[in-house]
Amino acid sequence: MTAATRDAALHLGVLTLLAGLWFVLPTYHSGNLARIMVLAVYAMGYNLLFGYTGLLSLGHALFFAAGMYGLAIAMQQGGWSAAPGFLAGLIAALVVSGVAGALALRTTGVAFMIVTLMFAQAGYLTVLYFGAITRGDEGFVIPQAARSLAGIDLTTPANRYFAALILFGAVFLGLAWLVRSPFGRTLIAIRENEARAKMLGYDTHAYKLRAVILSGTISGASGAAYALLFGYAGATFATVQYSIFPLLWVLLGGAGTTIGPLIGAIFMFYLIDLASGVTDAYMLIAGVVLVLLTLFAPQGLAGTLRNRVWPWLP
């Protein structure tokens, strides 16, 4: 089996498994899984920047929220239908990540982390400031009637699940192809040794900016899909916590692996789901996992598997 067919088998296998799970999982868990697939898109967008390009952003909630509010405000205030609303979300995320990226990429390392954190904080406060439209922390609901695409009602559990799966599948396969392409390999080269990549003639700044924009737009697609499928937009999704989540998912699942973001999102979602049943202080589990991961498994689950068992894991 060649590397390419093995890759294809793995990725299509994962998608087939996810499709099959709909028919066996009880409603509660298939609902969770729909949510997880949308959030995994966010994690995959984050992974492109952190895992493949080596840029650690602490402000991706800005892009997630840009997509979410781009769609939600267009639909709620502008009365747009779902398809142009989704496009509005994508464009909002694209523009925001372009501007934030162009500025933040003038810095590196720790300064980059802090600048992105600050931008996201400013974004969160902006959502609060325009509380008349966004209704702040309380958020607002997108009317059920508007939430349909090409005549398909996205509010039924089955349609919602498969809509989430289609988005997840498109991004999953797209990124699996991208990271094997010359563009993706250049990003990996930048992660490994930016000075050398530059001295091979690559305009590393331009590559990094494209990575931020692509990563931000994918994160925005996740935010827009979340608002569309679950019918709600709120300032919580713009908080620092939602910038930390994708980092947590990707670190746990394995940065720089195509499958890691999904694995991390599934584990973390259920860990927090279980913990929140026991205590209000459920974010404690996120803190403990972060510390344990940095200490003992910086490669994450898929990364550790790749190191120990399957070196071919993409």
Binding site: L56, L251, A281, L284, V289, L290, V291, L293, T294, L295
Partner: peptide, 29 residues
């Protein structure tokens, strides 16, 4: 924590984010 990750700047930030939640949520409990 920090000594064990050899004060690597990026990993330190991630670890102290973890510490932030541990301290804050333990206080909540």
């Amino acid at each position: 924590i920090l000594a064990r990750i050899n004060y690597d700047p990026e990993r330190t930030i991630v670890a102290t984010i973890g510490l932030l939640y541990i301290l804050q949520q333990s206080t909540l409990m």
